[in-house]
Amino acid sequence: MAWNEPGGGNNKGPKDPWGGGDQGPPDLDEALKKLQEKLGGIFGGSSGASGGSGGGGALFSGTMFGVIAIGALIVWGLMGFYQIDQQERAVVLRFGKYYDTVQPGLQWNPPLIDEVIRVNTTKVRSASLREIMLTQDENIVEVRLSVQYVINDPKKFVLQVREPERSLQHAAQSALRHVVGGNSMDLVLTEGRAKIGMDVDDRLQEYLDMYETGILVSKVNVDESKPPTQVQEAFDDVIKAREDEERVKNEAQAYANAVVPEARGSAQRQIEEASAYREEVIANAEGEADRFNKLFAEYEKAPQVTRERLYLDALQGVYSNTNKVMVDVEGGNNMMYLPLDKLAEQSQGRGGRAANIDSASLREITDAVTEQLRRDAASSSSTRRGGR
């Protein structure tokens, strides 16, 4: 029989499914009160309490729990925000396992679930070491090395190797011993430092890539390389001697650079002068030969005139280069003096201009001198005869 059908015992009305007997429809306030009592019992309230005071305490406890839970959730969410600087990268681990690599900016990750490890990828770090080792020629040297590096892969730097910077130290020692062991002591102590630094850089980066450390080597510097202390003085003398040798070589090279160009210039100048002299001599010879040929042709036409003309030209050349002429008379005791400079001054004074001794004047002077010489010779002869 259905619960709402009449009958069933002493009850006159319909059957109540909530066990209320002949009561009417269930009260909503009563149902809420029962629910609060149950929640109060679960969260520490008094389930057996009755009356208005007991129901109000259970309702207050449930409301406070909800507020606290919501506040805790908000705080938990706010704790997940963080800022990554421009020079940093962040490795995110979720429950201890790699999850993501976070770029710069404002980020959020669930707190207490994700672990954020910040890594500065732009800072240049430095590591140094000092080692005593054998060279290829079985000599002992002491080398001090410094390595500059940055982190280029945060994931590998954080997760792949337990102590990546310590691994860098060990790898640098291995690379340095390998490179120094393949070179002679003289190269390590003198001009080979830069080459050793580059070789160590290449080999060290190869080791770090093989170990997956996430480290990028920027530069390797050999800060110091020296022999053992016991033989330091002898090595200092050797280095000083080599420096003196290099200095002398530089001085000799500087002297050669100054002298050789000057000698080459002087040699070139002499060559040019010789070439010019050769051209001049050849040109003069050719001109004289051509002049002689032309003069010979004229001589064949008129020998007497040509001889006289040559004679006069010779005298003019002689007289034009001197201002005094001494004439010796054959058979005479006196020597005649002909002052050509005085004659030229007199001619200049008369004419008001410089005198030019032409062929006619020269001939007149020659004839006059010859006639005077003859007279002097004749007078001398008559005087000697009369004395006898």
Rank of each mutant, 00 (worst) to 15 (best):
N4K: 07
P6Y: 11
K15P: 03
G19D: 00
G19C: 01
G20D: 10
G20I: 00
L28F: 09
G54L: 02
F60N: 15
F65Q: 02
G71L: 05
I74G: 01
G77L: 07
D85I: 03
Q86K: 03
V92Y: 10
L93V: 15
V102T: 06
N109Y: 10
E115A: 01
R118C: 03
S128E: 02
L134Y: 12
T135W: 01
N139C: 06
V141Y: 03
E142M: 04
E142W: 03
I151S: 06
K156D: 06
L159P: 00
S174D: 15
R177L: 13
V180E: 10
G182A: 12
E224F: 02
A241Q: 04
D244A: 03
E245I: 12
A252P: 00
A256G: 03
V259T: 11
R264N: 02
R269D: 05
R269H: 07
I271N: 11
R278L: 07
R307H: 04
N321C: 13
K324C: 08
M326R: 12
D328L: 14
D341M: 13
G351F: 08
G352Q: 11
A354D: 07
R374N: 00
S379N: 06
S380Y: 10
S381T: 06
T383E: 04
R384K: 15
R388A: 14
